[in-house]
Simulated assay, not measured.
Amino acid sequence: MGARTGEQGDQASTARSGTRAALQEPGNGTAGDLYGYLLAHYALSDLRCRAATEAGIDPDRIKFTRTVRIVRRSVTDAAAFSP
């Protein structure tokens, strides 16, 4: 295949530089994405453990998915109000 020229080449480079496309290309920050997921998991697990300890219950009784839903709801509710 030959080199892309003109508008077609510009569109291809713009599509590759988009956020969604950049996250889907292997080798383009994949290690950083994995680190981000692991860090988020650790933070949510720590939050779950602290909340359970404060409430006086076993942390294993609180489901991880329930913690994710609560945090997601509280984050999106706070974003609903403009400053």
Rank of each mutant, 00 (worst) to 15 (best):
L38P: 00
S17K: 05
L47Q: 02
R73G: 08
R72A: 07
D33S: 03
S13N: 08
T14D: 12
I70Y: 01
R69C: 06
T14H: 13
E54A: 10
I70F: 01
C49Y: 01
D46W: 14
A43D: 06
A31F: 03
A22N: 06
S74M: 05
L23G: 01
A79C: 02
N28Y: 05
L23N: 05
P26F: 02
R4M: 11
L38S: 01
A43Y: 10
L34K: 15
K63M: 10
R73Y: 09
A15T: 14
R4P: 07
A55E: 02
A52D: 02
S82R: 14
F81R: 05
L34C: 03
R16L: 15
T65I: 15
V71I: 10
A3I: 15
A80W: 03
K63I: 10
D10H: 14
T19W: 12
N28S: 09
L44K: 13
T65V: 15
A15E: 13
R69I: 11
G6C: 00
T5Q: 07
D77G: 02
R48F: 01
G56H: 12
R16F: 12
S17N: 05
A22M: 09
F64T: 05
A78Q: 12
H41D: 02
E7P: 04
G32M: 06
A52Y: 13
G9T: 11
G56N: 10
A43I: 14
L23E: 03
T65M: 14
Y35K: 08
T19G: 11
N28H: 07
G56R: 13
A22I: 00
S82V: 15
G9H: 15
V71N: 00
T76M: 10
Y37S: 00
A78Y: 10
K63V: 12
S45E: 04
T76D: 07
Y37D: 01
K63W: 09
H41Y: 05
D10R: 15
V75Q: 08
R72D: 01
I62C: 00
E25Y: 09
K63T: 11
A22D: 05
G36W: 06
V75T: 10
V68P: 00
E25L: 13
T53C: 07
R61N: 08
A22C: 03
E25K: 14
Q24V: 07
R50A: 09
L38R: 11
I70A: 03
T30M: 05
A80H: 04
T30K: 08
A21S: 10
